[in-house]
Structures are given as structure tokens and as C-alpha cells.
Design a binder for these strands. Structure first.
Length: 104
DNA sequence: CATTTGACTTTGA
DNA sequence: TTCAAAGCCAAAT
């Protein structure tokens, strides 16, 4: 398979069901790279809009949303929350996703 | 071909 | 408990 790491990540992220979230390490592990969390994030950094990837469903292991260093910050925290709420994800009072319920 | 970077994770103090 | 630093992998330059 000439498929690059990106393609694998995109495929998995695209397969994340609504109302569910996945951590970078989790995805990396599925790809066979338990330590490739950074690489997964890197794939997302490419942010292929054409695939319309639900990258907002990809969170940190703690359940907090990714900081998105790109563009310095901000995509709008409200936007991320809105996207997840739209997917049916419940937010904890800490501002984190309820991974206990949403993490696969 | 070698170096740098980057949406993370884990461990140490 | 919270803060800081190191480690790792793959793509881009």
C-alpha cells in the first residue's frame, strides 16, 4: 500500500462516528504506532478540507480539545464545542469531552 | 541525504 | 496537585 500515514489517519478520522471522539494516541496505536501520536497530529495539521475531516472529534487523551497551535490559536472555542454538540457529544463542566462515554 | 517542525504523550520534580 | 522537559514518528524543506 503506497498509502501514506496521512491517508490512514484521514481514513480513521473519517470513520469516527458522530458523538464519539478519539485521541491522537489512540489513532496512532490503531495504525501500529503507539508512539506516533505526534505524527497523527501532523497529518491533521495538513487539514484536508476536501475530505471534510471531523478533526474536531479528535481530542487529547485527557478529553480536552486540541490546542491547535496553527494560526496561533483559535478557531473559536465556541465553534469546536458547537461542532461536538452538533454531533451529540456531551461536555463536562471542565470544558472537556466526556470521553468515558465518547471515546471508543 | 540531513535537519527542522509539529493538532501529542508520558514521566519527573 | 501543577508545571516543565524529553521522547517519538513521519513529512516538509
Amino acid at each position: 500500500m503506497d498509502k501514506g500515514f496521512f491517508e490512514q489517519v484521514y481514513d480513521i478520522v473519517a470513520e469516527i462516528p458522530a458523538g464519539k471522539v478519539m485521541s491522537y494516541g489512540q489513532i496512532a496505536e490503531l495504525l501500529g504506532h503507539p508512539r506516533g501520536a505526534r505524527t497523527v497530529g501532523w497529518a491533521m495539521r495538513s487539514c484536508p478540507d476536501e475530505l471534510n475531516l471531523p478533526w474536531h472529534r479528535v481530542v487529547k487523551k485527557d478529553g480536552s480539545l486540541a490546542p491547535y497551535m496553527t494560526l496561533g490559536v483559535n478557531f473559536g472555542d465556541d465553534i469546536r464545542r458547537h461542532l461536538l454538540e452538533e454531533d451529540g457529544v456531551e461536555f463536562l463542566p471542565d470544558g472537556r469531552v466526556d470521553m468515558e462515554q465518547h471515546q471508543l
